[in-house]
């Protein structure tokens, strides 16, 4: 079990209580300790409450977001006080550095896609030295009459269902980019990953090996070649259409 220190990190609105930057309280075992002369906002505490017991515990679930969740915002729209939860090192009592870097992923905006398929061509070429789009890990689905151009590409889901669905453990994460990597020797072309993919982003090449975006080991060629902002490589932004 960890003890926790909850610190006011920033205030986006105006808190009339007031809570001030640097204010904190400690969760130690089963009790809350507030420094003398200080207070804690009831509404903020209420929003923090459910996660505190979870943050105290070691969690070993792969891809679980709770160990990496650090910030909570008070629910008062006028206040906007941001609290950071630090786990404390049981030996030193100091805050553990466990900030997770959110890896960038490819984000898609079909409304800006020109349908040119430059992304397909460059993807195929850098991976296979062939311009043949059948070998590309990104595919543009077009409806010319309706003017629709929709890029299909892996979004590197946090809790990737493709990895779980693979019966032969051919998929793993790149330690460098967090991209889902395919072991071509192991892949049996069973289509299970493609069925599990919520973005229809997985296709198969001529040798029946899964084609999944590997983020070009960080140098995303398709994004660089995209003439509009239909493709972006970023760690911000929501789930698109």
């Amino acid at each position: 079990m960890y003890d926790l220190k909850i610190v006011v990190e920033s205030i986006e609105g105006f808190c009339d209580l007031p809570m001030e930057i640097g204010d904190y309280f400690i969760v130690s075992g089963g009790k809350i300790e507030i420094p003398d002369g200080k207070h804690i906002c009831l509404w903020a505490l209420q929003s923090l409450m459910p996660v505190l017991p979870a943050k105290q515990r070691e969690l070993n679930e792969e891809n679980d977001w709770i160990p990496h969740t650090k910030r909570f915002r008070c629910p008062d729209p006028n206040g906007g006080v941001v609290f950071r939860i630090d786990r404390l090192d049981p030996k030193t009592g100091k805050a553990l550095k466990e900030e997770m870097e959110i890896p960038p992923r490819i984000q898609v905006n079909p409304d800006a896609c020109t349908g040119c398929r430059a992304c397909e061509t460059v993807c195929a070429f850098v991976h296979t030295q062939s311009f043949n789009a059948e070998r590309s890990r990104i595919k543009i689905a077009k409806n010319e009459i309706k003017g629709e151009d929709i890029p299909y590409i892996c979004r590197q889901c946090g809790d990737a269902p493709c990895i779980k669905a693979c019966p032969v453990e051919a998929l793993r994460r790149s330690p460098k980019t967090n991209a889902v990597l395919v072991d071509e020797d192991k892949c049996i072309g069973c289509n299970k990953c493609a069925e599990a993919c919520p973005f229809d982003a997985i296709s198969f090449d001529g040798n029946n090996v899964a084609l999944i975006c590997d983020l070009c080991d960080g140098e995303v060629e398709c994004v660089q070649r995209c003439p509009t902002d239909a493709l972006k490589f970023d760690n911000k932004g929501g789930r698109e259409k």
Partner: peptide, 14 residues
Amino acid sequence: QKEKGCFACTIPCS
């Protein structure tokens, strides 16, 4: 509504 391009074109003029 939006720009359109020919195959692999980086200067979409349509």
